[in-house]
């Protein structure tokens, strides 16, 4: 569904991503693992074209989306959920959802306010509250809900478990599994191996902007040396 082919990205002169190559098949959850600064977020932003790859290409559903403006990438069915809970704090929950709303797309679930509230019951009670009044966990839910309103077929989740309470982390894991069961494809970045193990089918390990391992979760379990080298727990 998504192919990342030989992508190299730079911030100014700094070479942040070095020849990334991996695929994500439809209906699977792939976890991008690596420490802070390894290049996980840059990989996501390179897919969304929020960072323009200097070379290589990103193919989505057979279409080369490299160098598209990011709003066009988003309208094409890729939904990005940023880290650090970048919700619009001055807007109400409903208005946040409104910003994410896009016209229905063939072959994708058409999300309504009610459907995301069913998925995140906490948000329903707070629909008229401003984003800044939400707790960290609720904000994290809102970032996901907001992206779902764009009816994506593929979502990129950047560090969904970072900085939130363990109870909410469990809820996040359940939501991801539920989205997968509804046919969404997910690429998520994580530092937390436990979390990845709970939800992912495939794994990509990156360090210093270079991918060190690509395979299924089972394959990773079979190679404890790799796991220990890059993902010391």
């Amino acid at each position: 569904m998504l192919e990342v082919k030989g992508v190299n990205s730079f911030y100014g002169k700094a070479h942040v991503l070095n020849d990334m190559n991996f695929d994500v098949s439809a209906g699977t959850v792939v976890a991008l693992l690596g420490r802070n600064g390894a290049g996980k977020t840059t990989t996501m932003k390179s897919i969304m074209q929020m960072v323009r790859p200097r070379s290589g290409s990103v193919i989505y559903k057979g279409q080369d989306i490299t160098n598209w403006p990011s709003h066009k990438v988003a309208r094409n069915g890729l939904g990005y959920v940023p880290e650090e809970r970048r919700i619009f704090t001055q807007l109400t929950v409903l208005e946040n959802l409104e910003v994410g709303r896009q016209p229905p797309r063939d072959g994708c679930t058409t999300w309504t306010d009610q459907m995301v509230f069913d998925l995140f019951p906490n948000l329903a009670e707070r629909r008229n509250n401003r984003g800044k009044a939400l707790s960290g966990g609720e904000q994290q839910m809102l970032t996901i809900a907001r992206t779902l309103m764009g009816n994506p077929s593929f979502i990129l989740l950047d560090e969904p478990s970072e900085g939130i309470a363990p109870v909410i982390v469990e809820q996040m894991a359940r939501v991801i599994l539920q989205l997968k069961s509804e046919g969404l494809t997910v690429l998520l970045s994580e530092q937390n191996l436990h979390f990845a193990q709970a939800v992912a089918d495939g794994v990509v390990i990156i360090e210093h902007g270079t991918q060190k391992f690509v395979g299924t979760l089972a394959e990773l379990q079979a190679q404890p040396d790799i796991r220990d080298q890059y993902l010391s727990v």
């Binding site: 969304m48 929020m50 403006p69 990011s70 709003h71 066009k72 988003a74 309208r75 990005y80 940023p82 970048r86 619009f88 910003v99 994410g100 896009q102 907001r146 992206t147 764009g150």
Partner: peptide
């Protein structure tokens, strides 16, 4: 940036 990532030009 976020608005753009949500599909708004």
């Amino acid at each position: 940036e976020m608005v753009s990532a949500l599909g708004v030009n």
